[in-house]
Amino acid sequence: MFREGVEGFEGGLSAKIYMTNTQISQPNATRDLPDLAEKGAFKKTGELRYTRYTRYQLNI
Rank of each mutant, 00 (worst) to 15 (best):
M1N: 05
F2W: 06
F2M: 12
R3T: 12
E4P: 07
E4N: 09
G5Y: 05
G5A: 06
V6A: 11
V6F: 02
V6T: 14
E7N: 11
E7M: 05
E7C: 06
G8K: 06
F9N: 12
E10K: 09
G11A: 00
G11C: 04
G11Q: 01
G12M: 02
G12D: 07
L13F: 00
L13K: 01
L13R: 03
S14I: 06
A15Q: 01
A15Y: 01
K16C: 03
K16Y: 08
K16E: 10
K16H: 12
Y18K: 04
M19K: 11
T20S: 14
T20Q: 10
N21W: 02
N21Q: 14
T22Y: 03
T22M: 04
T22I: 01
I24N: 09
I24A: 08
I24P: 03
S25A: 14
S25L: 13
Q26C: 09
Q26E: 13
Q26H: 08
Q26P: 08
Q26T: 03
Q26R: 15
P27I: 06
N28M: 15
N28V: 10
N28D: 10
N28W: 12
N28F: 13
A29I: 06
A29E: 04
A29P: 01
T30F: 05
T30W: 07
T30V: 11
R31E: 03
D32N: 13
L33S: 00
L33C: 00
P34W: 09
P34T: 11
P34H: 09
D35L: 09
D35E: 05
D35Q: 12
L36R: 10
L36I: 02
A37T: 00
A37E: 00
E38L: 05
E38H: 01
E38D: 10
K39C: 04
K39G: 02
G40M: 07
G40K: 14
F42G: 00
F42C: 01
F42E: 02
K43T: 15
K43C: 07
K44C: 12
T45E: 08
T45C: 07
G46L: 05
G46M: 07
E47D: 13
E47H: 12
L48T: 14
L48Y: 13
R49V: 11
R49W: 03
Y50G: 14
T51R: 14
T51H: 04
T51F: 02
T51E: 08
T51M: 09
R52V: 12
R52Q: 03
Y53S: 05
Y53M: 07
R55K: 13
Q57N: 12
Q57V: 11
N59C: 13
N59L: 14
N59G: 07
N59V: 15
